Simulated scan of single mutants.
Amino acid sequence: MLRIKGTIGDWPVDLTVEMDDADWARLAQNLPAAAVAPVAPVPAASGPADQLWLAAQDLLRRSGSTEGPQLLGELEALAGSAGAAKGLLVRLRHSPKVKIEVREGVQVFNWVEE
């Protein structure tokens, strides 16, 4: 179930939409890849997106530490598009294996093993 509350202009909106698993799957297919976050970690690379995620983690792991703008450029080269690179950067930002520091106003991504 999805509930939408707010206003359209001066009109109040309170809408409830019931969706089954098939509806959610169709919705997810139409969203950009960066907008669809996985619900649980994937244990092994089972598709191109999983392999790309593993490659992005490996990229940061091998460098140990990379400034955000440089990492974004490297991820774009790896992923083939700016949108996919931004999605990977967001996933790295929220990964428990990554610590972010700010040095002189620049985010620095650090790989930390847990």
Rank of each mutant, 00 (worst) to 15 (best):
L72E: 03
L78N: 01
E101Y: 10
L92R: 01
E18R: 14
A40S: 09
L2D: 07
R61Q: 13
V98C: 07
D10T: 15
A37C: 05
A77H: 13
E104N: 13
R93L: 13
G47K: 09
E74K: 15
E104G: 13
A56R: 00
L27Y: 06
M1T: 06
S63L: 08
A85F: 00
G87P: 02
L2S: 07
A85D: 00
R62T: 10
H94E: 12
P41A: 11
R103L: 11
R61N: 05
A82E: 10
M1G: 05
G105V: 05
L89F: 03
V17Q: 07
D50H: 07
R3Y: 10
I100C: 10
L89N: 01
N30Y: 06
A28N: 11
V90Q: 15
I4K: 04
E18N: 11
L52E: 01
L27T: 04
G83Q: 13
D23L: 07
V98Y: 03
L75M: 08
E76M: 11
D50A: 06
P69T: 09
P69R: 08
A85C: 05
D23N: 14
P38M: 11
Q29D: 12
T66F: 01
L54C: 06
P43T: 02
Q57Y: 09
P32A: 07
R3H: 13
L71H: 01
V102F: 06
K97I: 00
V106F: 00
R91S: 02
P48Y: 04
K86N: 04
P32E: 03
P12A: 10
G73A: 05
L75T: 00
Q107H: 12
R26H: 04
L60S: 00
L75P: 00
A22W: 05
L54M: 08
R103I: 15
D50N: 04
Q107R: 13
Q107T: 02
A44N: 08
L72V: 08
A22V: 14
L59Y: 07
G68W: 07
L92G: 00
K97F: 07
L88G: 01
P41I: 02
D10P: 11
P38V: 07
R62M: 08
D58Y: 06
G105A: 11
Q57M: 14
M1W: 09
S81Y: 07
Q57S: 09
A33P: 00
A85I: 02
G6D: 01
I8T: 11
N30T: 12
L88Y: 02
D23A: 15
E104F: 05
A35L: 13
P12C: 06
A33K: 10
